[in-house]
Design a binder for these strands. Structure first.
Lengths: 348, 348
DNA sequence: CCCCCGATTGCATCCGCAGTCAATATTGCC
DNA sequence: GGCAATATTGACTGCGGATGCAATCGGGGG
């Protein structure tokens, strides 16, 4: 704890933050010495360390990370980019990422992309701040990816993938998850399916939906009605309204995420008097907190968020240390949650 | 869009990022000129601007915000600090803060405090990175506050207040909200109340609970049993289990936040066969997304998050521009949401 | 007690860019 | 067309700290 103010007043009367020179002067040593005391593997004698630390403490000195970044070419900051959607899921991810990075002494510079057109701006800012790496949990275009690669900035995608490009990524095996959900529903006797998808341009949604549809086809189920949502609870409600009005005989609804599945259950119960799961089975995907609420007890697939965030940070850190490591993809299996919002048969 | 790589290879064969000197050389002008072209109110002729931008584009040049920060003494970064708890509420806040700051061309450096002991570390890092200001949405000790004030870094508290210190803050009027909830419940005939509080050391919880208790006393209701939770859904469930077991005749439960209120409703319905709100009224506080889920339709008070985040950013920005502005407190009234989880009478 | 080697320490310079000051280039005005 | 005023431009310095290199300090072996 600094024992006094950490500012000084120069001749002009304006405040000036204390620098390593100030500390050096007070301690009667060189600026280099101060610098070395505040570094990792620097060589400094015990006596030197004590004197410098005492002086630093007295002045309330703190190394300027900005200046250090300039000279070392390492900002020790990583950009984390999130989209605006899927409000209930990413927060958890964000906190975990921040903590894991913090353990490695890396700070998080947070960016959000709400509209596609923001992407270029955000990218520009990240580059200007010379972040050491990027964790991307939002949509990104092909051109932007190229920019990263040209700039030589390590990048790890979270739950995104570019099949056509070599990129580091960590994601959940959505195909597997949807296959399990779908197979279990069919095995339990459902035949009249419907789907609530996510936004058209969401690769996550497309992969989930395609996997489910593919599996349904393989199991002999065709002509599956589909309504588009935007991942929100409200859109799940709206979609269900449409589906159950147009196709009253539906007996299973596959939603592209949990939030919409929850909306679906509410509308099915309250407005269409369906019992869930007796009359209608509903499944989601993600394993968000509210999926476990007693009123829903959703049948879903939970992403192993903890392991995934750890993997992201691991991979990114490796690339920061060794930029030439070849790209890697890590795919985690989701955890099947039987829940109680669907009649399923998992014995097969 | 840069037309080529933005890196060069120097004689040692290592990559080097392009600097304003590189651009200056290619454009045949001075480095100062390049610098001015990339600034706000700098004076540069049209011709100069064109030449420089062309050269910059060709080299993929981007100003180094780190270096700029070093010389201007403005990092254009603001620290945002969040706690680990209240998972469902802060995400929204965080995204909005980031966007508002981004509009003012300020970046967010994100920190999380999970344990009290992290606080000092986090503080140290913020100071090292020379953030221009701090938005604090987590607990903070008296000593840390002093450190900020000594360092002369503008600080705005979000939903916290130090009655004893002069600090900028933006918060929701919790007393008013709880008074409304409590009065409406009593007016509707409830007499046997119980309370589910938040963590002992949460000022937010204490203010809410104290306000409710005070109001109850004023209205002649005494001996209100209370169980402590931790703001989580699960803790709301547990607390309700205890309360309804020990006091089966309770007819109204006031929870310190929505998440616990939701857990309370689930347990009351599923494990104690209470109808909500016929047998038992439950109210929360915050107005989180799930409070609007059909299964709960929570009676609660919604924080005007949008206006509050805007106010925080406004206040902070003002202090960054004019550090000597005197402290200010902005208190927003919450929005009363009648919902359907409680029998209330609001006619009084 | 002297010499050699490794651990410390200080000096000087650089990281990339903004802003000051003086030198030019332009423009307006009579 | 000449002169003052204004707009541009370039050389140079410094923001705060890290680091290569040379100088200095200590200590063990002979």
């Amino acid at each position: 704890m600094p024992k006094s103010s950490d500012q000084q007043v120069d001749t002009s009367g304006r405040k000036r933050r204390t620098t390593s020179y100030d500390v050096a002067q007070l301690a009667g040593v060189s600026q280099s010495a101060v610098s070395r005391v505040f570094q990792q593997g620097a060589s400094a004698s015990e006596a030197m360390r004590d004197r410098v630390l005492a002086a630093a403490d007295q002045l309330g000195y703190r190394p300027n990370a900005i200046a250090r970044g300039l000279i070392t070419q390492r900002s020790n900051m990583v950009a984390v980019v999130i989209g605006k959607q899927t409000n209930l899921f990413y927060p958890e991810v964000l906190v975990q990422l921040t903590q894991h990075l913090s353990e490695r002494d890396i700070r998080v510079l947070l960016f959000t992309i709400s509209h596609e057109r923001d992407a270029a701006d955000v990218l520009e800012q990240m580059l200007r701040y010379r972040v050491d790496g990027v964790i991307m949990a939002a949509m990104i275009g092909d051109a932007q990816l190229t920019t990263f690669q040209n700039a030589g900035i390590p990048l790890v995608l979270y739950n995104r993938a570019f099949p056509e490009r070599q990129v580091n990524s960590v994601r959940c095996n959505q195909t597997e998850g949807e296959r399990w959900l779908t197979s279990s529903l069919v095995a339990a006797g459902h035949r009249r399916f419907a789907i609530i998808s996510g936004p058209e341009d969401s690769p996550v949604s497309n992969e989930r939906i395609d996997s489910a549809l593919q599996r349904l086809r393989d199991l002999g189920v065709h002509d599956v009605p589909m309504v588009r949502g935007d991942y929100s609870y409200a859109s799940g409600c709206d979609a269900t309204e449409v589906l159950l009005t147009d196709h009253p005989d539906i007996d299973a609804i596959i939603a592209a995420n949990d939030a919409m599945a929850i909306g679906c259950i509410d509308v099915a119960r309250d407005r269409f008097a369906r019992r869930v799961p007796e009359d209608l089975s509903v499944v989601g995907f993600d394993g968000i907190g509210p999926a476990r609420f007693g009123a829903y007890n959703l049948t879903t697939v939970r992403q192993p968020v903890g392991r995934m965030t750890e993997a992201v940070v691991d991979m990114l850190f490796q690339r920061i240390e060794a930029p030439d490591l070849s790209p890697e993809q890590r795919v985690f299996s989701g955890e099947f949650i039987a829940g109680g919002s669907a009649r399923i048969d998992t014995t097969t």
